[in-house]
Nucleic acid binder design. Sequence first.
DNA 1: AACTGTGAAAACTTTCACAGCC
DNA 2: GGCTGTGAAAGTTTTCACAGTT
Lengths: 228, 228
Amino acid sequence: MQGTKKVSDSTVERLSLYLRLLGELHESGVATVSSRELARRGGTTAAQVRKDLSVFGTFGKRGLGYAVPELKERLRGILGLSRPWRVAVVGAGKIGSALLGYADFRRQGFLVEAVFDRDPEKVGRTREGLRISPDEALEEELGARGIDIVIVAVPAESAQEVVDRAVSAGVRGVLNFAPTKLDVPPGIALKNVNMAVELEGLSFALVHEADASARDGGENGGGDGVAT
Amino acid sequence: MQGTKKVSDSTVERLSLYLRLLGELHESGVATVSSRELARRGGTTAAQVRKDLSVFGTFGKRGLGYAVPELKERLRGILGLSRPWRVAVVGAGKIGSALLGYADFRRQGFLVEAVFDRDPEKVGRTREGLRISPDEALEEELGARGIDIVIVAVPAESAQEVVDRAVSAGVRGVLNFAPTKLDVPPGIALKNVNMAVELEGLSFALVHEADASARDGGENGGGDGVAT
DNA sequence: AACTGTGAAAACTTTCACAGCC
DNA sequence: GGCTGTGAAAGTTTTCACAGTT
């Protein structure tokens, strides 16, 4: 792969946003949408929408805009959603269990097919129709089931160990909810979700509110941080 | 406050990261730390650490580094954590309930003091020692309790309404878990957490053969650039 | 006329490199 | 020698503005 061009994280994040908006438009029976309208609904700008899309090709018709169903399918393809992904959740505590029930995952093709916990009290019980497997079975089951992505919902202390074992079992993507920095080898994708960081970002915005409002005209105070 | 300069979101995110690292160092009894060591632990660079801190003043000693307990307290102050924040969770479904039990919140001074739900079945029940209040009581209770921040954990359709009502009751920060774009008036801080976006980011990285040099600041955003 | 696709400019963020202090 | 604080350089992302298509 030579002609490989780097795509920024924020572009990918916005593609995800556009995909959601296109789904909504599709459901409402809208056939065509302009970059301006997508931008309005997504809280960004028309130029940004066009630039983001232009990274992957040309999808619109000048004078007309974008065909909703077509662009939606193209974006699904670009985001890797035209095939399902096998997901496992490690840690059946509060957060892990809450994620299991998150129906939106399945809707977008993320199939949660295994849950693990280290607590013998929990092992064998069922969560959302899935039997909780023991920690010791991690490598074997991840491998046997061909899991692509693990969601790490264990305490910070155990998170790195879980990731190392998952990677050794062939997992290629990690969504980390533990409040700690994880190291993964090259070629393994890692995303972090950290609620403390978000709350502290709000706290910062609140104590520095004066600065923010002195400055802005129409933008949402404090901006919208992460993962829109 | 006119002369105040804009601080970037990513700087604030990293301050949050540094604060966590300083907490760990403090617990281990480490008295002093260099920008280089903080960077190593946080997956960033020494220059970045120094630049981030320099926005707020000068905290280190040349030749020596930073005094851990002192820098930690300074960062807490900068992030607005030297006072507690009153938080309410709206929506006592899976995610809302999971958040209630998240002990780290309390530890950093985010006091969850109210939960709301629209479902009459849930109203009156208890979650983590908190009685679930009915949706209709939202404005009054938020106002009476002086809630600063609401965590929105309701379905996308109801999220904007909840935010409008919360803002009218005096709330100044919103942490949104609903997968929808929210509008808030100027001066109100808003952060979004969207699991679908994170998973789709992983999916993108996986199909585009992540060249993942695996570093990561730790908090949001994660993985890094990827090739097309 | 409406709207895209895109080079070029502007804005912003990160990295470099070094003077100055311990 | 070790290390910070910071201007200047490099790199990245966003916005502008307009030629070109339907």
